[in-house]
Write a protein that binds this DNA or RNA. Structure first.
Lengths: 110, 110
DNA sequence: TTTTAATATTGCAATATTAAAATATAAAAT
DNA sequence: ATTTTATATTTTAATATTGCAATATTAAAA
């Protein structure tokens, strides 16, 4: 097939998967790290930071935006992209829950 | 193309992307949540928990294992799968760094 | 040693992703 | 008005993923 059976999972499972998937490419991780690093968020030079062509970077940015990891607004010829903190916090919180749950159980059988 | 230019990114970027990618499918998120939920980790019944055929589940487990998110050891006919806590902690820590970095900067321009 | 039960592997069709060249758009600068 | 600059979109090609049927493996049970 190739099409994910999205409907068969919970909304939260799909939400986490969507966020994780968006970070499932080193270029998009690199973009997030660059957005974190720069003070200003007029980010026209992301292309120069990455070993990828401009259309490819643009596409990666689109995916990050679709997934809700970054937000952006138009500023003349350049676009202002920022990390959407809520999404990162959502991920952090999710993994914190798992970590807590595991340390409580201490089932080190593997 | 379609092949990711892995070599052009840092080891850490690739590591995070690998972990994130493995969680980039709701079935694999569901598997992690199931492993978290059960006390014992003799998890032969993951297949019954998911709306997917056994080979598909097996494949998803393999991907989680390759990415280092779960570990498993053979126990007779059944396999003992567990979450690899280190991987989850690595993710949590990574997102914590980003969150901290952002709240320090307070660049709410988007 | 055959059966059974649990899991893995293989092969393949359907679909998705990745990358970039070519092209488009749209605002700022000349 | 034309050029430049920055970004997006479209198209095309290569590759990867998803899902499952069929089959294989493996070890315990009968």
């Amino acid at each position: 097939m190739g099409a994910t059976k999205t409907a068969n999972f919970t909304d939260n499972q799909n939400a986490i998967a969507t966020l994780a998937k968006a970070l499932g490419h080193p270029a998009r991780v690199a973009i997030i790290e660059y957005l974190m690093k720069v003070d200003t968020c007029i980010c026209g030079d992301i292309v120069n930071e990455l070993p990828l062509a401009q259309p490819t970077v643009s596409q990666h940015l689109k995916e990050l935006k679709n997934a809700g990891l970054i937000k952006g607004s138009i500023e003349g010829t350049s676009i202002c992209y920022c990390i959407d903190e809520k999404a990162i916090e959502q991920l952090q919180h999710y993994f914190a829950i798992i970590t807590n749950n595991l340390t409580n159980k201490k089932n080190n059988c593997c």
